[in-house]
């Protein structure tokens, strides 16, 4: 079953890639095919965001149950969220170079994602600085929840401080997607694909981490005996 779902995921993402280049037309008003980065950039940003939200939920669950499995799930979600976040930032910067003429221009979304990445980087730094697993889980869960409360402020503040050129065809004030149906279909398919990819990687990584922890625990016991 697990192998089948992994193959299905592979097939789905391959179809999305093909669809992004051969099925969807280039969006109007953009230079050449530069709009095609949308099919990867937006789902990456979405997966990163989903990872950070999921990590907060796991942190809350850890504090409620004190089950270290939730702590591990939160840590892995943040690691993967950072990976997807960096990828979204880099793809966004490449697109910004083509469309706006500069890789970085402190667009509100660029700034917000950068600060979110700094915050979750700090989370990993905190984990690195505490040795005891229980204490590490407790402190980092508290910090992740603090982040959930503090970072939304940036989404109110930043648009007031800097001018935005960021296109908003999907998430906009009217609440209706403004794009051609083929583009929207591929984007939605890609969003589903990246979300599944995120949770597939998450599942793999938590299992790897659990095995590594068990191995080091067994080694310590071996030395003790």
């Amino acid at each position: 079953m697990k192998t089948i779902s992994a193959w299905l995921l592979w097939l789905w993402v391959s179809l999305v890639i093909l669809g992004a280049f051969y099925y969807a037309p280039p969006a109007e008003g953009f230079q050449g095919g530069s709009s095609r980065i949308l099919f990867f950039h937006v789902p990456m940003a979405w997966a990163s965001f989903a990872g950070f939200i999921a990590a907060s939920v796991w942190s809350i669950r850890y504090l409620m149950t004190r089950d270290l499995r939730h702590d591990r799930a939160a840590e892995v979600a943040i690691q993967l969220g950072l990976v997807f976040g960096v990828l979204a930032t880099v793809t966004g910067a490449i697109w910004a170079r083509i469309e706006w003429g500069a890789y970085w221009n402190w667009d509100p979304r660029q700034t917000s994602i950068l600060i979110s990445l700094l915050f979750y980087g700090a989370y990993l730094a905190l984990r690195g600085a505490v040795e005891d697993p229980e204490k590490r889980a407790r402190l980092s869960a508290a910090y992740a929840i603090l982040g959930l409360v503090v970072t939304p402020f940036l989404y109110w503040i930043m648009p007031r401080l800097t001018f935005s050129l960021h296109p908003e065809p999907v998430v906009n004030a009217e609440g209706k997607p403004k794009m051609q149906s083929e583009i929207l279909q591929v984007l939605m398919a890609s969003g589903i694909g990246f979300t599944a990819l995120f949770f597939w990687l998450h599942n793999l990584q938590t299992r790897v981490q659990a095995l590594a922890e068990r191995k080091s625990a067994a080694r310590e016991q071996g030395y003790g005996a």
Binding site: A122, A125, L126, A129, V150
Partner: peptide, 26 residues
């Protein structure tokens, strides 16, 4: 939080600045 970690002095700036950033901007 940082008082219970190992590298206390430097860790405070690393952890506190992203938290305090919205406040400072405002």
């Amino acid at each position: 939080i940082i008082a219970q970690a190992r590298t206390k002095g430097t860790l405070f700036s690393v952890l506190a600045f992203p938290v305090l950033l919205p406040l400072l901007l405002l």
